[in-house]
Design a protein around this nucleic acid. Structure first.
Length: 648
DNA sequence: TCCGGGGTTTTTTTT
DNA sequence: AAACCCCGGA
């Protein structure tokens, strides 16, 4: 007999950490509910306590599905909920939309035309495969049509837009790049080829993870029923940044029980380029019986900063007035500098002053619209030996050596993965693009014919013979293990360590990175789980395991989403830079406004908005002056709410 | 035909 | 970091 333990009761006093609005949202939400949150209003806390509340009511952790924007956010909420409830929440399924989708999809891969050992293409790999599809189509086109075919990057962004918004090809081209309207037919052909190739190669790109899950649910009512029975509650964070596909997935998963709890702030929707629709917020409220809660008290920023925030609320957002609870003595400061050199000097000098006043570098962040804006500043920080970390820029998993190693692992998991084969094969002597593609194709043939693919590698003669023999040898060795970190070590011993030595001057650092990768891998015993996690979660970070404490943070505004610091500098607030000139020319100035809103709402105590009188660092686009495009955010700031500093 | 070494340019944000 | 182009050599 099985003796079932009742859930540990959670006493009411546990909710004493919540204010009235928050408590209302947590305790009175049921069925279909949405929480409209202002910045800094304790949205993480509300979701955390929603989990606590559910568990206290006897819901099992395995019946809760939590979807967030970053893995770090999910982890934070679970950790906090674990502390409050004292229950280990291991069975709870939580993570980014993509990782959760992958998790749910893996079991049913067959039903959407895939094998369950499919591998996931990151953005770059997907773009490479799009290039492959493009060249297949291009080969059978006459010269004039060949020329009309957009570059692979453009094709990929149109395709991605089409998938994210579920619109027609025509609409996607019109929205992303109207000048390719005449090439619709051949673009369509490339997309067909791309999709076929993905199925053939048993690979999915990021969009597929979502679209295929939606298809699975739509086309298989029994699967939909069993999944939505399995979960009793669907929780979604950052709802304003979900796209249509994510919205539909969430709705479908909640179909049976009707329990769906979403939290968002339409003023902070900043991912429209990825299909995010802040309109989802409105649609959600208007469809069905939706309970609407608001949490509008700002606990993060001082009243002086909140005054400015209230005046800078984006035009198209739902009207709201934040209440501040923290008194501050400093108005936000608008800083005028001459050029980016002077801007960097100002920021660095001010940071030095703050640090000598006892503020920890941890509490300081510099935010900017695009990576390139940080260059000058990084140099200056390094020069003056101020400890800093850069959240933006090339990520760990995007470095060449990590991608090389992952390519080998992907081959082992899914030998049909063409992009990975090409990448790995080209590392060997005498092999270039052409041979590598041939290798990948003959391997696929061998696998389809049920043969051992290492045989296929031995059939090549000429210059590449030796290299391919070595490759075959390496693969044979790697196949002896199924443990990801063991495979990485075998690869290093057998081949890659030497390769790094004769290829790169900084081989030592790169080897160190690979060692780190092996260490991360050692937490997994399944190759599939390791690869899934590393390709679907962003927070592997630029340098995992590095001691990131006590450092000034440099970050794009996008990556600063959800974070906060005592002192925030927003730099390069010039028309053209921020707002970005490309966004403006695409008519997307609303989103730039929201982005600026996100930037200034990260600050707790001190906010510096820095701009340059010289304007954009890149003033000319073609022969037009870029900085004449778009208005300056600085001009929109009410003078009485800020202090103005001139640097000289 | 293909490899690989040399060069230059890249210019938004990213799961 | 990698796409792109050019060119010498196999």
């Amino acid at each position: 007999m099985k003796y079932i333990l009742k859930p540990k009761p959670v006493p009411e006093r546990i909710f004493k950490d919540l204010d009235e609005e928050q408590k209302n949202a947590v305790l009175n939400s049921k069925g279909r509910s949405i929480v409209i949150a202002g910045p800094g209003s304790g949205k993480t806390r509300v979701i955390t306590y929603k989990i606590v509340h559910l568990i206290s009511q006897g819901v099992s952790p395995s019946e809760i599905l939590l979807m967030t924007f970053t893995r770090a956010a999910a982890k934070e909420m679970i950790d906090r909920a674990r502390n409050v409830t004292g229950r280990d929440l291991k069975e709870m399924i939580a993570g980014t939309f993509h990782s959760v989708s992958n998790h749910l999809l893996r079991k049913y891969a067959k039903l959407v035309g895939y094998e369950n050992n499919y591998t996931i293409l990151d953005r770059h790999d997907a773009e490479t495969l799009m290039g492959h599809a493009r060249s297949i189509v291009s080969e059978r086109l006459p010269l004039d049509l060949k020329r009309a075919l957009p570059k692979k990057g453009v094709l990929f962004s149109i395709h991605s837009y089409m998938m994210n918004t579920l619109c027609s090809l025509e609409e996607a081209v019109r929205a992303k790049n109207p000048r390719f309207m005449e090439a619709l037919d051949i673009i369509k052909e490339v997309f067909q080829t791309y999709t076929e190739e993905k199925v053939k190669q048993n690979v999915m790109d990021y969009d597929d993870l979502l679209v295929n899950l939606l298809r699975l649910l739509e086309e298989n009512p029994d699967v939909e029923k069993s999944l939505s029975r399995r979960f009793k509650w669907i929780l979604v964070d950052e709802f304003q940044d979900t796209n249509v596909v994510q919205y539909l997935i969430a709705e479908r998963l909640a179909k049976v029980h009707g329990n769906i709890f979403v939290v968002g702030d339409d003023a902070q929707s900043i991912y429209s380029f990825r299909g995010a629709r802040f309109e989802n917020v409105e649609d959600f409220i208007n469809s069905g019986e939706t309970l609407v809660f608001r949490i509008q008290t700002n606990y993060r920023s001082t009243d002086k900063i909140v005054d400015l925030i209230n005046r800078m609320i984006p035009k198209r957002a739902v009207k709201k007035e934040l209440r501040s609870v923290r008194k501050g003595d400093k108005k936000p400061i608008v800083v005028e500098t001459f050029d980016d050199e002077e801007q960097a000097l100002f920021v660095v000098q001010r940071i030095e002053e703050l640090i000598s006043n006892g503020i920890s570098p941890d509490d300081i962040a510099v935010l900017y619209r695009s990576h390139s804006h940080s260059m000058r500043l990084e140099m200056e920080l390094t020069f003056r030996r101020i400890p800093h970390k850069v959240l933006s820029g090339l990520k760990f998993t995007e470095t060449a050596h990590v991608k090389d190693v992952l390519a080998f692992l992907k081959i082992l998991q899914n030998p049909l993965d063409l992009v990975s084969w090409v990448r790995a094969t080209k590392l060997f002597d005498g092999v270039g693009d052409v041979t590598a593609s041939k290798v990948a194709i003959s391997v696929a043939k061998a696998v389809d014919g049920g043969k051992d693919y290492t045989e296929a590698l031995k059939s090549f003669g000429g210059k590449s013979k030796k290299g391919l023999e070595k490759l075959s040898e390496v693969i044979t060795t790697l196949r002896k293990s199924e443990n990801p970190s063991e495979i990485i070590e075998l690869l290093m011993d057998e081949f890659y360590s030497d390769y790094l030595d004769y290829t790169y001057e900084n081989a030592r650092e790169r080897k160190e990175d690979v060692r780190m990768l092996a260490e991360i891998a050692s937490r997994y015993d399944s190759l599939e789980r390791f690869l899934s996690d590393i390709t679907t979660s962003e927070d592997v970070g630029p340098r995992p395991f590095e001691d990131d404490k006590d450092k000034v943070t440099l970050s794009t505004v996008h990556q600063a989403k959800g974070l906060e610091w005592k002192v925030v500098f927003v730099i390069s607030v010039n028309p053209g830079d921020f707002p970005n000139y490309l966004a403006i020319s695409e008519g997307n100035s609303d989103e730039e406004e929201r982005l600026f809103y996100v930037a200034i709402t990260r600050a707790k105590d001190e906010l510096y908005i820095v701009h340059q009188t010289l304007g954009s660092r890149r003033p000319y686009i073609g022969n037009r002056i870029a900085w004449s495009r778009g208005e300056s955010f600085v001009d929109k700031i009410p003078e009485d709410l800020v202090e103005v500093w001139e640097v000289g």
